[in-house]
Amino acid sequence: MTVSGIIKRIGGVFLVLLGVMLLIFIMLRIIPGDPVSVMLSEHVSQETIDRIKISMGLDRSLPAQFFSYLKGAVRGDLGESYFLKEPVVDLIAEAFPYTLKLAVFAALIAWAFGIISGMICAMFNNSFPDYLFRGLSLFGVSVPIFMVALCLQYLLYFKLSVFPLSYDGSFGSMVLPAIALGWNSAGSVARLTRSSLMEQLGSPYIDTAMAKGLSYKGAVIKHAFRNAMLPIVTMMALQFSGMLSGAVITESIFSIPGIGKLALTAIQTRDMPLLQGTVLFTAFLIAIGNLLADVLNALLDPRISVS
């Protein structure tokens, strides 16, 4: 891993973020008709439309608008929410801790379950535990997240009353959303752990370790697992940035006031600056997640270089 490799990679991240900004900017402004009347989505007088247009700077040419938005974004100013009348950055800063808490919790549950069940599958290949956990992980990747959430609400709130129905600030009320959000990730981590570990278990160095007197369990945990973790760590970094930015459904079902809910509010109230800001922020998180995944991979495996 060279310094120039990392610098090149960071340059790439900036280029992609600039592209995201341009894409979102264009997409929100090629609206058929006038962006302000779409935003208001009701009949208002032409004077009101003109007034809002001027106050939001939408009367200027598109390149001028883009550059002033870009300049603001670099300084940490993403404009003001039209509906909530607050700076977009403040709203994101308010919402982000909730999303972060949810993502950390979901990731811990998902990874613990995913890695352990993947290991069991690989160690007991083609026997009952393997089939059981493989079936479960398949459910993990194929069940829509809202179905998981609704089933959890039905079973653990309505039938057994173990956890509250929606988020109320308590620790317990984070459990159901975290399981719902982590469900898919657990499935994919389990599948990847299984295949990656199986590949390592077929390598000659495992036979050597066992010939030297190490038990099968010891060989799996001390040798195979460490090498098998490489692709899993990459996947985990990507999943985590995905959870931070893509929890729209979970946050909406469990009423968690996080980033996803903010984006949904933005689209429901037709708040263009807020939608633009949240999308840009999440793209930033994903880009950082991808970069971290690459760097982590290079740190863990000297054979890979960042560039």
């Binding site: 280029l15 992609v16 973020l17 592209g19 995201v20 894409l23 979102i24 997409m27 929100l28 090629i30 609206i31 058929p32 779409v38 995905g242 930015s245 893509g246 729209v248 459904i249 996803g260 984006a263 949904l264 689209i267 037709r270 263009m272 939608l275 949240t278 999308v279 999440t282 793209a283 994903i286 880009a287 991808n290």
Partner: peptide, 23 residues
């Protein structure tokens, strides 16, 4: 590839929301 990277680095749901906002 840059264009592909750009669309891939926005979370799918949010990208779809931007399109649905506009259209």
């Amino acid at each position: 590839m840059w264009l592909a990277d750009v669309t891939l680095s926005v979370p799918g749901m949010l990208l779809a929301m931007v399109v649905l906002y506009s259209f």
